[in-house]
């Protein structure tokens, strides 16, 4: 079996770790070997949270620069910050709803234009799926479900050795019961958005 390497970047609080967990569980359901790593600790205080998921035969749990086959960013500026993980044929999925860091508000940095983010991603990586995932999460019933919207888009892109069905099963099993319906709706909205993006 071949190896598929996925990088997910997000801002602390966006639910990246839960999304990774769901994908891990979906891989377990699919009988696909999976290894993941994540950075906790100080990163949680509003910083960047990065997860790496390696599906298939490899033993490593981290992904070197240029080695991501698939790249998901929960935030536009974070996509560019972590861009070195990608190479020219990386499939990337980017949420276009910005969360400007406080450094922008105190004049210690400039937030990129969304068009610029899209342009750079499209130019430098392979297939790009970019849309406002927060709007769809809100439509699903909770802004907190933005992670599930992006999982939907990831499933639609059909680049992981894990089926949409198993991801949905894992969502139902691993996320809070009171949120299951919202999460599944968010997943479906993300799936549909990616199909037309």
């Amino acid at each position: 079996m071949t190896t598929t390497r996925l990088i997910i970047v997000a801002v602390g609080g966006q639910g990246n770790l839960l999304a990774s967990r769901v994908l891990g569980e979906a891989a377990l359901l699919s009988g696909v070997a999976v290894r993941m790593s994540e950075i906790h600790g100080m990163a949680q205080r509003g910083g960047v949270v990065e997860s790496a998921l390696v599906f298939g035969d490899a033993e490593s749990t981290i992904i070197s620069d240029g080695e991501a086959d698939v790249f998901v960013s929960f935030e536009p500026a974070e996509a560019l910050r972590a861009l070195k993980k990608c190479r020219k044929d990386t499939v990337s999925i980017v949420n276009l709803s910005p969360l400007p860091p406080f450094t922008v508000a105190i004049g210690r940095g400039v937030y990129p234009e969304l068009d610029q983010v899209k342009k750079i991603m499209a130019e430098k990586t392979g297939k790009l799926i970019a849309f406002d995932a927060v709007a769809l999460a809100t439509e699903a019933g909770s802004v907190m479900s933005v992670n599930m919207v992006l999982l939907g888009a990831l499933a639609q892109a059909d680049v992981l050795p894990v089926s949409a069905e198993n991801i949905k099963k894992a969502i139902a099993a691993r996320t809070k019961k009171s949120f299951t319906d919202i999460n599944l709706k968010a997943f479906d909205l993300g799936y549909a958005a990616a199909a037309s993006a």
Partner: peptide, 21 residues
């Protein structure tokens, strides 16, 4: 060597250091 994407014309992103809540 697997070449990562060329970052030469990618602007610097504003910092997002961990901060007090």
């Amino acid at each position: 060597i697997v070449e990562p994407v060329d970052l030469s014309n990618v602007p610097d992103m504003p910092g997002r250091p961990p901060t007090l809540c």
